[in-house]
């Protein structure tokens, strides 16, 4: 008998969504473990937003099912879930605090509103009209709304798009704190660094299908035995003859994917290439993403 696996908090089964002829989601299945930060990655139009909106119960699926704690997601799920949409309109003429208060009152189980406000760094904006927020401030308000019910499971659809680097780091810290309180998080993002920092498990989607799934570290280990050497293109006009490793030119850099770094460096120096600006790095999620989807990232 296999060891009893803890039941997933969320299970997605054979989800399909067609918008007329557009097959946005093409029969995907995955489980989200309790207390896990689950990342949904993929290029523009991959079907990430469609997938999370079906889970949230906001978009009807063409077929397939979503189970929350083993049962079809329904009223209990809506009480427990916190949702931050990629884009969401709010009421005009209402302040940040009033907006939070309104959503707060819709739930049975409620978070401490003062805590939510300080978590999302909205203290100084409480009395500001919704419409007068900057892009990043608005993202923080949308996050605040997602937290008013102290959710057991939190959905974040590209939460840091439009945030400055400082706000993004603060946001990551906040997500870590929320996780530490035993919450489950489902996150979609275009930022591989974000996914690598926050997520225990990721799914990479492309054209409505899952192309790979697992813990970031394991995925990298499974896909790459090699290491990456980077040199500025100007230092290496052309590759030495009979160079045994594949190389790519991207963004002014030559990337050499070498499973034997010593061998690669020896050959480069023998060919007389200046190595003063050589950079050696492990594979990152970004490399995997590019290799698998064949698409450039556009945050």
């Amino acid at each position: 008998m296999a060891a009893a696996k803890p039941a997933p908090i969320l299970a997605v089964r054979d989800l399909v969504k067609n918008y007329g002829p557009v097959r946005a989601v093409r029969g995907i299945s995955f489980d989200v473990r309790r207390d896990c930060c689950f990342g949904l990655l993929g290029p523009n139009g991959a079907g990430k937003t469609t997938t999370v909106e079906i889970i949230e119960g906001v978009t009807p699926a063409t077929s397939g099912e979503v189970l929350y704690q083993g049962k079809p997601a329904g009223a209990a799920f809506r009480q427990d879930a916190g949702v931050q949409f990629q884009t969401a309109a709010l009421q005009d003429f209402i302040t940040v605090r009033e907006t939070l208060e309104m959503f707060h009152r819709l739930y049975r189980h409620r978070a401490d509103l003062g805590q939510v406000i300080s978590d999302c760094a909205l203290d100084k904006l409480e009395k500001r009209d919704n419409r007068k927020l900057s892009g990043g401030q608005r993202q923080r308000l949308l996050l605040g709304i997602a937290l008013v019910n102290d959710p057991k499971i939190l959905f974040l659809d590209e939460p840091t798009t439009g945030m400055d680097p400082q706000a993004r780091r603060n946001f990551w810290e906040l997500v870590e704190r929320i996780r530490a309180r035993g919450k489950t998080i489902v996150l979609t993002t275009h930022y591989m660094e974000e996914a690598q920092t926050l997520c225990d498990e990721i799914v990479i989607m492309n054209e409505g299908e899952i192309i790979t799934q697992g813990a970031p570290e394991q995925l990298l280990k499974a896909h790459y035995k090699a290491i990456i050497l980077e040199l500025p293109e100007s230092d290496l006009a052309e590759m030495p003859p009979e160079f045994p490793f594949p190389s790519y030119r991207r963004n002014g850099l030559v990337e050499i994917h070498a499973d034997d770094a010593n061998e690669a460096i020896t050959r480069l120096s023998r060919a007389g290439a200046p190595l003063g600006r050589l950079n050696i790095r492990p594979y990152r999620l970004e490399d995997l993403f590019l290799d698998l989807t064949g698409k450039e990232l556009r945050p």
Binding site: G57, V58, F85, A88, A89, F103
Partner: peptide
């Protein structure tokens, strides 16, 4: 207007 701008969609994700 609420439906068109997506405010209703946001409300749908609540117990309302």
């Amino acid at each position: 207007r609420y439906r068109k701008n997506g405010f209703l969609k946001r409300l749908k994700a609540t117990p309302l």
